[in-house]
Design a protein around this nucleic acid. Structure first.
Lengths: 343, 343
DNA sequence: CTGAAAGCGCTAACAA
DNA sequence: TTGTTAGCGCTTTCAG
């Protein structure tokens, strides 16, 4: 099983060159230093022996591990974690970096230990990713090396972050509804404890105002299916006045509840009413009847951009910057929105 | 920012000892070799300087990276991936191992490249994890070092695997329903292309038989909400004969559809009918009205046990074995199941 | 019981 | 243009 791998020494012997020549060829630094035909012989020898440089040895020498660490708060409880990790790992792999993960299994404040552990392991850069959008006090360890925040922002405002553009998401979702001919659009749900809510509502109202429509009604409710169900049920009751053309839900779960309420009230979606979700929660938004039109949270993109931003800084030896990058939430059109009935 | 870290040399000087003494103390090999008071002085010096051994250097020397790699097929599209990765990373961290990930972003067959890349990076062990339960042809690279499969099994049967015990899950779910007094229980859903379905149905029928009940009816349908809705709608239509006491759904999505159909048909859940899900899909099973009673897929456990099994082999220098470990799917009781009405 | 010496495999500065 | 040398920080053997 062990199958000893060849070393640069072996390749050098095989090609009749020196170890350092091999090293230079493998690292692309050979051009002014090793004759072209020697380079070719080395390359051939390397290929023949299936030589590939030992990353641990080169890491030791260069004082670079080519690993980037991701520490997450309770990835286990989020259906979105996989997307972020996949995005980061794919981006990193594309630049020859390895992605190492540490899940704190608890709130972001408990990540300190894991950050230290990853630093001890000599990761070149660090991503701190939270499962829901929030503002956090950044653990000290993060500041000691290139790091960015994903899906959260620094209370001190001095650390770079990648977060969804929720205002724009709220706006574009609303524009989609308006373009379909809807005029009376009601917002449902989203507990007040989460940062995303006010931003989305701001976008919602901005789009309405831009279209010359009056401010939209905002119905308080939580984030879950039954919150959406109850709120929509009340909204659809005839005694509560005219029905809205469309509802814009704080989450796909709320939207699923609204869908259910519409069905219970005998309303056709989207014939009688359009329902818009938010999150693009896999195995939910794509699994309702009809499928939910929704704004996708860019988890994969956050992972990718976070990794790319760190790697760019690492590879150019530059500072990473404190800017906050806002990522677009793409509109995913499924069946739950359609043209206004009276349009 | 770089803040040079102390080396074993620094500690040795500080404590008036030799580098090797420091090494032995840090690795617990000091007892017959370094005098107790010298050990104490070294330990104190290490603490004072906040010395921690350089894992890359020791890895190079020991030819061990203390990293275990996880390669996943399309983690990005699964809401369960995070649990598995969190389980593995927590278990690994507990033993001083680092978890590195590589997401193939495609089917399991495309993981070869990522396996090779992780091997090149000198991971000590490898986990190949699939997002849905299946039998796969194991890529060659996996056999060249300690590896286990998570959520999939080896077509050749020679590689260790950790998978959910779906037969037992099907049985225990059914037993839960039977214990509630239900007698006529119908299975709904689960396309035929997925391995999990026949196993769950086998458990379902076994529990029925063990209770002296006739074989349960099995309704064909897919895995999604609308599949569950349609199947349940037909099942609940009065013209299709007496209603079942309970339905056992192939997935939480199907169960969500069934819940919706029950509501549409004016049935109370669980008063008139109990609905059982499968998967414990986060942000769905816990977000319906009422919450779904379901069998949890042990993703976190699979990650944890896979990591532990590899690490145990690594740390004892033993073979890893070809056994398949079956993990229990825990019953999660929420509101969608209750006592039979006529009981 | 202790410390010096020899690398692990690689890279980069330097000398030829 | 080439090859030699001196480490990166650690572990482990072996002579004191």
């Amino acid at each position: 099983m062990p199958n000893r791998r060849p070393t640069a020494q072996d390749v050098a012997k095989h090609a009749g060159a020196s170890r350092s020549a091999v090293s230079m060829v493998m690292n692309g630094n050979a051009d002014g230093n090793v004759s072209p035909d020697m380079q070719e012989r080395i390359r051939r020898a390397a290929a023949e022996l299936e030589y590939t440089p030992h990353p641990i040895a080169s890491g030791l020498r260069r004082q670079r591990s080519r690993m980037i660490g991701i520490v997450t708060d309770e990835a286990a409880s989020s259906p979105f974690a996989g997307r972020m990790l996949a995005g980061a790992s794919q981006a990193a792999a594309g630049h020859g970096y390895l992605t190492v993960i540490a899940d704190a299994g608890g709130p972001a404040a408990d990540t300190t230990h894991f950050i230290d552990e990853l630093r001890r392991r000599r990761v070149d850069g660090l991503i701190l990713a939270t499962q829901s959008l929030r503002t956090i006090v950044v653990p000290d360890g993060l500041r000691l090396q290139p790091s960015v925040l994903a899906n959260c922002r620094d209370a001190a405002g001095t650390m770079g972050a990648i977060i969804p553009d929720e205002v724009r998401g709220g706006r574009e979702a609303t524009e989609h509804l308006i373009s379909l001919g809807h005029r009376r659009i009601v917002w449902i749900g989203g507990g007040v404890d989460v940062d995303a809510r006010p931003a989305r509502i701001r976008g919602f109202q901005a789009a309405l105002a831009a279209a010359g429509l009056p401010p939209g009604e905002v119905v308080e409710a939580g984030w879950d299916i039954d919150d959406g169900f109850r709120a929509a049920e009340a909204l659809f009751a005839p005694e509560n006045g005219p029905r809205p053309d469309a509802v814009f839900c704080a989450s796909d779960r709320v939207a699923t509840g609204a869908l259910l309420a519409a069905r219970t009230a005998g309303l056709d979606v989207p014939g009688d009413i359009s329902i818009m979700g938010y999150d693009d929660q896999r195995h939910l938004a794509d699994a309702t009847v009809p499928g939910l039109t929704t704004m996708a949270l860019p988890h994969e993109g956050m992972g990718r951009v976070a990794a790319e931003r760190i790697i760019a800084a690492l590879d150019s030896n530059a500072e990473i910057g404190a800017e906050t990058t806002l990522l677009e939430c793409p509109l995913v059109v499924r069946g739950s929105t359609g043209p206004a009935a009276r349009a």
